[in-house]
Structures are given as structure tokens and as C-alpha cells.
């Protein structure tokens, strides 16, 4: 195994390129795990966070259908989940994780806390983006006899689309970083790879290689997200 054959460290052997080449398969696996985590957690967060965010917007005291008391409760629940440091959330919800995916270790087990963390995170983005649209288009839609569902689907979410793409981009970048803590429950991923080799084994060059990969990943996500938002934004 690789862990048994690591006598050289990057800082002592020049560039340590051969060490990186030696670890390439493992880096590939780690990148794959990161992709899986993001590709499951982010879409799930969008799928579940959007209705929650729309509800937060709609039920607020100035929303489409104010429900002040229910809003207060859900609002503080969202804040509560958002307050947990991710590492603690990861541990705290182990029973829930076991219930949902049947295991508490591995990549699948990390996806649960990532998603649970991401849902209220994205819901806040949705709420914020809808609030910032202003009352003009909502008023016009009401005057046209739109139902609340139509106002949300055909007006608010359409008008907020560029802002929502921006929010998804920010969320994805944040969760590339969060996913690094997956190692704690054996979830793997490129961030975990960097921690294991750089932090635990002082293989600085290997860590740097992993970090360069993460930088590249963040760049691709950010540039792609910005482009997409710009194309969709007709203002």
C-alpha cells in the first residue's frame, strides 16, 4: 500500500515529481470522490433548498402570503443548522446519516451532512435573491391575476435566474472546501487527500499538488458560473 512506502517527502527530494506521479491513481480517485460529493450534494441542495427559500420569502411578513409565526420558527431552524461548524454537524448527525444511507463511513456518508448543510445555505440565497427583485414585477403579476404559484414560477424564479446561478457558484466553491473535512469519516476527496499527505505526513509537494488541483477546480466552477450568469442576465 502507498501508506507503507512513503520514505521520501517532497521537501527533501527536489521537486518530488516522481512522488506525485506515483500517487496519481490515488489523486484520480480523490478527485472522483470530490466530484461525486459535489454532484450529488449540490443538486440535492438546489432541489430542496429552492422550495425552502421560496417559502421563507413568501411567508415573511412582507411576502406573498405572510405567516409570521410559522416564518419565525422555520427562520430560526434555518439559522440553527447554519450555526453548526461543519465538522460538528458531520459528527452530530451520524445517526441520521446511518438511517439515510445505511453507513456512517465513506463518500456516501459525507454526502448526507454536506446536503443537510447546503439546503439552508442555498435557501438563504434564494430568499435573498427573490427579496432583491423588488415589488414591481410581483405587483404587475398580481394585477394580471396570477396565482401565487404562477408568481413564483413564471416571474420570481425567472427574474432571479442569473442571481441564482451566481449563488450556486458561490455555494459550490464553499462546498469544495467543506468536502475536505470528509476524511474524518473516510469520505475521501481531494481536500482530504491534501490533509492526509500534507498535514499528517508532511509531504508538502503532494499537498501543494492537491491544492493546485483544488484551485483549478474552483477557477473552473467560478468562471463557468460567472459566464453562465452573464449569458442568462438580460437586464
Amino acid at each position: 500500500m502507498l501508506s507503507a512506502s512513503a520514505p521520501t517527502t517532497g521537501s527533501e527530494s527536489g521537486l518530488g515529481l516522481d512522488r506525485i506521479i506515483e500517487l496519481l491513481p490515488e489523486i484520480g480517485v480523490a478527485m472522483g470522490q470530490t466530484f461525486v460529493m459535489l454532484l450529488v450534494a449540490i443538486p440535492l441542495a438546489i432541489l430542496l433548498g429552492t422550495p425552502l427559500g421560496v417559502w421563507l420569502y413568501s411567508a415573511s411578513p412582507v411576502g406573498l402570503k405572510p405567516r409570521p409565526r410559522a416564518h419565525r420558527i422555520v427562520d430560526s431552524l434555518v439559522n440553527t443548522i447554519r450555526s453548526f461548524p461543519f465538522l460538528i454537524l458531520l459528527i452530530a448527525i451520524i445517526p441520521i446519516t446511518r438511517f439515510i444511507v445505511g453507513t456512517t463511513i465513506g463518500t456516501a456518508a459525507v454526502i448526507v451532512p454536506l446536503t443537510i448543510n447546503a439546503i439552508p445555505y442555498f435557501a438563504r440565497f434564494v430568499e435573498q435573491n427573490l427579496t432583491q427583485l423588488g415589488s414591481g414585477v410581483v405587483e404587475a403579476a398580481r394585477a394580471m391575476g396570477a396565482t401565487r404559484g404562477q408568481i413564483v414560477r413564471d416571474v420570481l424564479l425567472v427574474e432571479a435566474r442569473p442571481a441564482l446561478i451566481g449563488s450556486i457558484t458561490i455555494m459550490t466553491v464553499s462546498f469544495i472546501s467543506y468536502s475536505a473535512m470528509a476524511g474524518l469519516v473516510g469520505g475521501g476527496g481531494i481536500g482530504d487527500f491534501a490533509i492526509r499527505y500534507g498535514y499528517y505526513r508532511y509531504e508538502t509537494v503532494v499537498m501543494l499538488a492537491a491544492i493546485v488541483l483544488m484551485i483549478a477546480l474552483v477557477q473552473v466552477v467560478q468562471i463557468g458560473g460567472t459566464r453562465l450568469a452573464r449569458v442568462l442576465d438580460k437586464r
Binding site: 414591481g136 414585477v137 405587483e139 404587475a140 394585477a143 394580471m144 416571474v155 425567472v158 427574474e159 435566474r161 442569473p162 442568462l232 442576465d233 438580460k234 437586464r235
Partner: peptide
């Protein structure tokens, strides 16, 4: 109804 600031949807 029409409005002072038009209230058209910018993304349509």
C-alpha cells in the same frame, strides 16, 4: 394595468 416604471420582466 400599466405602471410608472413599466414593471416588465427583464429576463423575458
Amino acid at each position: 394595468m400599466i405602471f410608472q416604471h413599466f414593471n416588465l420582466l427583464n429576463n423575458r
